[in-house]
Simulated assay, not measured.
Amino acid sequence: MSHPPRLRLLLVDDQPLFRKALASLINGQFDMTVVGEASDGAEAVAQMRALAPDLVVMDVNMPVATGIDGVRAARQAGIDLPIVMLTISDEDDDLFEAIKAGANGYLLKNLKPEQLFEGIRLAVRGEAPISPAIASRLLEAFRRGGPPSSFRAPAPGEDELELTRREAEVLRYVAAGLSNKEIATQLTITEGTVKNHVHHALEKLHLTNRVQAAAYAVRHRMGGEGGSGA
């Protein structure tokens, strides 16, 4: 029985020893392989263009150009492949800036290898992998009023389209940390339908990823029935 093509990954970290060790672990997986490496955010963008990987795993704090600089430059260049931050930094400012720049996930380097592999698979499927401790702090920050206003989504009725009842329902499950598959099971719909609802909600709310969507749902206490009909 043949396996599907391996996910092609780009690793970005300024520590060569860490990159090599991580590449060895990833290459041991049946469904992923490392196709390139970079040592800073600027080099990462060049490698994204040259290699067209399926996903990028990138550190935050690097010399020359940080990982956040790299994410921002990639998005400005129209590169929309998943980028997951893998870092020792659990600083709120780094987390918020990475998400604002367009990162698809934020993982800490103290996680187990299996957790990293699962995070990579989630990101490729359109999920937003975030280390549990970071996720709880992120949601708590939004409950308290959130990060700087430049990160926040518009307030209800402020230059946004109204969500349907189903889109609002899906968004509440996203805020609760459920994956697309889990949401599909809860609502008895297909995983593809969930992805469509998430996509439409992001467009209407002018958001770029699931993390911002979850934060929006928490900030606006989306516990009711949502907007207009499904």
Rank of each mutant, 00 (worst) to 15 (best):
L138K: 01
S2T: 14
P53M: 02
P63M: 04
L11V: 14
V60M: 05
D54N: 11
K204F: 11
A128L: 02
S149A: 13
P129H: 03
G226D: 14
Y173D: 12
V60K: 03
V174E: 05
A73V: 00
S131F: 03
N104Y: 11
I79V: 13
G28N: 13
I130Q: 01
D14T: 03
Y216G: 00
G105H: 04
P82L: 05
F96Q: 00
V218D: 08
D54V: 08
H220W: 06
G226V: 13
Q47K: 10
L207N: 00
A153Q: 01
L138H: 03
M32I: 09
A153L: 02
V174M: 04
V56L: 03
E225S: 15
P132Y: 06
A46S: 07
G102W: 10
G177L: 08
Q76S: 05
R221F: 06
M48G: 07
Q47R: 11
G41C: 04
K112T: 07
R143D: 14
L11D: 10
R210K: 15
A184Y: 07
G28R: 12
L205D: 07
L205T: 03
K109V: 04
R172F: 11
M1Y: 07
A52W: 02
G177D: 08
E167C: 13
E43C: 04
S228T: 12
G28H: 12
P113Q: 08
R210Q: 15
G177I: 09
A123I: 00
S149Y: 11
D159P: 04
N104Q: 11
K20Q: 08
E118S: 09
L25G: 08
E182N: 11
D69Y: 03
E182M: 11
P5Y: 05
T208R: 14
I99N: 08
R75Q: 01
A133M: 12
L7C: 10
I88P: 12
L163S: 10
A123S: 02
R8W: 02
A21D: 14
D14R: 04
R152I: 06
T208M: 09
S24T: 14
T190S: 15
A217V: 06
A168S: 15
G192N: 09
S179I: 04
I130K: 01
E43F: 01
H220D: 06
D13I: 02
A23P: 12
F117N: 01
R6N: 12
F18G: 01
L51G: 09
A213M: 15
A123H: 02
G105N: 05
R49E: 11
G70L: 00
G192L: 00
H197R: 15
P63C: 07
R75K: 08
A213P: 07
I68G: 03
R19N: 14
D54I: 04
A46K: 03
P147F: 05
V218P: 07
F30K: 10
M58N: 01
R8L: 03
M32W: 07
S39D: 05
R143I: 12
L51M: 08
P113I: 02
V198Q: 13
A230S: 08
E158K: 09
E140M: 15
R6V: 09
I120E: 05
A153F: 03
P63N: 10
M62W: 03
